[in-house]
């Protein structure tokens, strides 16, 4: 593992058993059903940078975030954080150490804060869990500092979450995430539940904090414009697999994978310059994904090989792309 990478994910697999109950299955002679939410995903994140995963709903990007956070036990593959393999770590103190350095910001500002807790207790929970305060006063001092740091006032700690707007709650979530002094933040659609004008405030806060504290972000979003604003590197996901990993500049100027291209074309254009071409069809059911390259039924460049053989990531300049058409120089 290279020194500069804070996170390396290798061949991550996350399968879920979505079979109906045993008796139903027996009566209808149904086989077990497995949802391959993430199927062999590899990427790494450089310290201090932002790596983003983008894709449509059901592509598995949130599952990756939760697996990296340790909320799911991966079916296969390795998650290596700071040289420690989270997937195989058994030692309690090691796990505690890893989890202190890694925090998460969730999508819904309403569900991610316990409604029965005061804001100061919500923010102090990680401080208490990792014993980062010498005493109560030290703890309050840290909490007040965090509140001010995210743009709230120190006295807001006495209030309950319902007294805040969506944007303010997301600030509270960020303060809580920062309270264990992490190096690495997983941000799962942190602004998609917010109004645009508030979204800009939160994104600005996140970039400012990254500069100030040298944070590394794993950023999940479905919004390509937000991704473009936040990221250094971008991974495009489709049905549990990554189809392209590329530096930000390349993605928008030189998209290689047909799915990436079509996704870029499907974004509504505020300036009304070009007429966008809607992408054909919809994301297939991930329980029964298409054969070969899972994108082939919607792909204008698909041929026989695409229907049968699954493409693997290959290197093209700074990017990695998994596409037969790119490999064969057909596009």
């Amino acid at each position: 593992m290279s020194e500069q990478n804070i996170l390396e994910v290798q061949g991550l697999k996350m399968y879920f058993d979505v079979s109906p109950p045993f008796v139903t299955r027996l009566l209808n002679r149904m086989p077990k059903q497995v949802l391959k939410a993430v199927d062999g995903l590899s990427f790494s994140i450089e310290r201090g940078k932002t790596f983003s995963l983008v894709g449509e709903s059901g592509c598995g990007k949130s599952t990756v975030a939760r697996a990296v956070a340790g909320l799911y036990t991966p079916t296969g593959g390795d998650i290596i954080i700071d040289g420690q393999n989270l997937a195989t770590a058994k030692d309690r103190s090691k796990i505690t150490d890893i989890s202190r350095q890694m925090q998460m910001i969730f999508q819904s500002p309403y569900a991610s804060l316990d409604p029965r807790w005061r804001v100061r207790d919500i923010i102090a929970e990680p401080i208490r869990a990792f014993k980062l305060a010498a005493n109560k006063e030290d703890e309050w001092r840290q909490v007040e500092q965090l509140l001010v740091q995210v743009g709230l006032s120190a006295s807001d700690g006495e209030k309950y979450p319902h007294e805040f707007s969506g944007g303010q709650r997301q600030r509270i979530s960020i303060a809580r995430a920062l309270s264990s002094k992490p190096e690495f933040l997983i941000c799962d659609e942190p602004t998609s539940a917010l109004d645009v004008s508030v979204q800009a405030q939160i994104l600005n806060l996140m970039t400012a904090l990254q500069d100030e504290l040298g944070l590394t972000y794993l950023f999940i979003s479905h919004d390509l414009a937000v991704i473009d604003h936040m990221s250094d590197w971008i991974g495009v996901m489709y049905l549990g697999r990554v189809c392209e990993i590329t530096p930000k500049s390349e993605l928008f100027s030189n998209p290689r994978h047909p799915y990436t291209r079509l996704l870029l074309e499907a974004i509504p254009d505020l300036k009304g310059r070009s007429h966008r071409k809607p992408l054909k069809g919809e994301v297939p059911n991930p329980i029964t994904p298409p054969s070969g390259c899972t994108f082939h039924p919607r792909c204008p460049y698909a041929n026989e090989r695409c229907k049968q053989e699954q493409p693997v990531l290959g290197e093209y300049g700074p990017s990695q792309v998994a596409c037969h058409a790119v490999e064969e120089f057909r596009i």
Binding site: S165, V196, S197, A200, L203, T207, H229
Partner: peptide, 21 residues
């Protein structure tokens, strides 16, 4: 509102935004 909408290729360090809510 229009200014605060991020746009592809804008390359801004901070997004313009309306203060408050």
């Amino acid at each position: 509102l229009m200014d605060s909408i991020p746009q592809i290729g804008q390359n801004l360090k901070t997004l313009p935004n309306i203060i408050g809510a």
